[in-house]
């Protein structure tokens, strides 16, 4: 016999909240089009979710609820910003959001993605891995990167894009195996 709901709500809530951080971030990057705004909006979203913890029904879909909160914050953020910060207009955003809701989020896919990404990064040639590292860890601009590797900016951009394309192929291949 199990006693119903022995979970103190806040503990379960925090676990879900932390479990969903990466995916919420990814979601916000998709809506907002850049990581810096996504960072800010994620923090605001966390605060809102924490305040509205009581409105979340334990046992219901946390991810869907969290995404709704994030989406709401993102749209509010865009409303407050100058037009030139927008990547997408309302119609496009609505389509992205609507389509995203149809996608299934696996509850534990996040760690698998993380592992797959690492394995794929590890399998990159050194030179490519270094480029990605410099771009993301050291936040170097394309101009700085180009200077460092002695190539043109356009070639550097293309190189980054190509690496990301091959990473996607690699990750998606591994996730098809979805390591449970």
């Amino acid at each position: 016999m199990k006693t119903e709901d022995m979970n103190p709500p806040d503990e379960a809530f925090i676990r879900q909240l932390t479990d969903w951080q990466n995916r919420l971030f990814g979601y916000l990057v998709t809506i907002l089009g850049n990581v810096h705004d996504a960072h800010d909006v994620l923090q605001e979203t966390n605060v809102v979710m924490w305040r509205k913890m009581d409105e979340f029904e334990p046992g219901s879909n946390f991810g869907a609820w969290a995404k709704r909160c994030a989406q709401f914050q993102a749209l509010a953020f865009l409303r407050d910003k100058k037009r030139d910060r927008h990547v997408f207009d309302e119609e496009t955003l609505a389509r992205l959001i609507e389509e995203d809701a149809q996608l299934v989020d696996s509850a534990s896919g996040d760690e698998e993605q993380e592992i797959a990404l690492r394995e794929c990064l590890a399998s990159l040639p050194d030179e490519q891995r270094r480029l990605i590292r410099d771009r993301y860890r050291d936040q170097l601009s394309v101009r700085e990167l180009a200077g460092r590797i002695g190539k043109k900016e356009s070639a550097t951009k293309m190189a980054l894009m190509r690496i990301r394309e091959s990473l996607l192929v690699c990750i998606e291949g591994k996730l098809k195996e979805v390591n449970p």
Binding site: V29, L117, L121, I132, L168
Partner: peptide, 27 residues
């Protein structure tokens, strides 16, 4: 394509900026 690329972009960003990977280097 946009969604997949942005998701990877976000993940790489997290992974390297100390978001996901306090352990350090990939690989």
């Amino acid at each position: 394509l946009y969604r997949r690329h942005m998701d990877l972009h976000a993940r790489l960003h997290l992974d390297y900026s100390g978001g996901l990977a306090p352990e350090g280097m990939p690989g």
